[in-house]
């Protein structure tokens, strides 16, 4: 399985994951999740993302490795943006390629669900001229827990 993992300040290239994963027919399926800054009904003027350099990249590598053990994947791409963004900007790309769609759909959802609840990123929103930390959501924790309940070993650290 080839992998590409990065954390960057620069805007994400929307077409890069597909181009990088294309493998002339070895994979019959490429699934891409592309996350964007929501404006929350026009309230959010900007979003700032902080992370734990070093741990973040290592942890994203661990999640991808776990996904590769669980599903037969040919490639995995995880690129996350940090710094200050505007509504509509792309924050994260998770893309996987596999022979068949089921593995690709599930592995993409798995990587995203674990990333959201375990990878060391924190969001702040600019609302009415002041910054507020975003609270973690219970439903994200439940989604990750559902995947990890089926994992034989320890959860990704």
């Amino acid at each position: 399985m080839k992998t590409c993992i990065a954390v960057q300040d620069a805007p994400l290239n929307a077409t890069a994951p597909q181009q990088w994963l294309r493998d002339e027919g070895v994979s019959g399926a490429i699934v891409l999740f592309s996350g964007h800054v929501r404006d929350e009904d026009g309230r959010v003027e900007a979003l700032h993302l902080e992370h734990y350099p070093g741990m973040t990249e290592r942890f994203l590598g661990t999640i991808v490795e776990r996904a590769g053990q669980r599903w037969h994947l040919n490639g995995a791409w995880v690129v996350h943006r940090v710094g200050t963004m505007r509504q509509g900007d792309e924050i994260v790309q998770v893309a996987v390629s596999a022979e068949h769609r089921q593995a690709a759909f599930e592995a993409c959802a798995y990587i995203m669900d674990i990333l959201k609840t375990r990878a060391p990123f924190w969001k702040k929103e600019l609302i009415d001229g002041s910054w507020h930390w975003v609270e973690a959501r219970e439903r994200d924790a439940l989604a990750a827990a559902a995947w990890l309940a089926g994992e034989p070993g320890h959860e990704p650290r």
Binding site: M55, F59, T117, R118, A119, W122, W133, E135, R157
Partner: peptide, 26 residues
């Protein structure tokens, strides 16, 4: 040491401990 742990984790000299609120990436 850059690995998720619990508050019960044991510590020794040279360790790097990070404390943070629940994460909100993605």
């Amino acid at each position: 040491n850059e690995m998720l742990a619990s508050e019960e984790a044991s510590l020794e000299d040279g360790d790097v401990v990070a404390l943070f609120p629940p994460v909100t990436g993605g």
